Simulated scan of single mutants.
Amino acid sequence: MAIELTWAWLEGYPSLDLANTVIRRGWTEHELITSTADLESWLDAAALPAARPPVVTDDDLHAFLPLRDAALRLLRAAAGHGARHRADVQTLNEHLTRFPEVLILGDHPGTAVSHVIGSPAPFALLLTKLAAAVRDVLIEDRDDLALCDAPGCGQLFFQRRTNQAWCGPACGNRARVARHHAGHS
């Protein structure tokens, strides 16, 4: 079964947009980024924390996937689904230290400007900024990160209500229909 790439984001947060490039149909996970064309499509649609690189190569794709995989596992663990693994933390930290940033004073009082150390290629800078977005979610004191457990979803989202179980109305409807059919089987 082919998966249509719609890139319909739940929140517009770079960290979740990164992790949610793996989706679930039924209880099977599907990779949405399998080629540079897929990655280009995602870059056009996603909330990005840095400028979109003008072109993407196979090397960029091979650098993207390990970061995404580590981010996905770390964010799922933070949402209470799975364990936090040291190797994933190390992968994230490697991206964070590749091109660190410092805050320098801005031109106007009370302002600061982020300045990247070094001269990273656009895609390398984007990966560093994506890693920082994931880090920021993981270190914030928030308890609203959740995993939609509706059949055919599995996306990470931020709850808008304390009792919110699904990422959106469509998933809630799917879960209720599945529960209804299971009760009448």
Rank of each mutant, 00 (worst) to 15 (best):
E4R: 13
W7A: 00
W9D: 06
L10K: 02
P14R: 01
D17C: 07
L18N: 13
A19D: 13
V22N: 07
G26Q: 12
H30P: 15
I33W: 09
T34W: 04
T34H: 09
T34V: 06
D38E: 10
E40V: 05
E40Y: 06
W42F: 05
A46P: 05
A47E: 03
A50V: 08
A50C: 07
A51H: 15
D58P: 01
H62G: 12
L65W: 07
R68P: 10
D69C: 04
D69W: 04
R73W: 14
L74H: 07
R76Y: 12
R76T: 10
A78Y: 11
G80Q: 04
G82V: 05
R84I: 10
H85V: 08
A87E: 11
V102H: 04
V102A: 09
I104P: 03
H108I: 10
A112S: 15
V113E: 14
S119Y: 11
A121E: 13
A121F: 11
L130Q: 13
A131K: 01
A131G: 07
A131L: 03
V137Y: 03
L138R: 12
L138C: 08
D143G: 13
D143Q: 11
L145E: 08
A146S: 14
L147P: 12
L147G: 07
C148V: 03
A150Q: 03
C153N: 00
C153T: 03
G154Y: 02
Q155G: 02
F158D: 04
F158R: 04
Q159D: 07
R160Q: 08
T162F: 10
N163R: 14
W166A: 00
P169A: 05
C171L: 00
N173S: 13
V177T: 08
V177I: 09
V177N: 02
H181I: 11
H184L: 07
S185G: 15
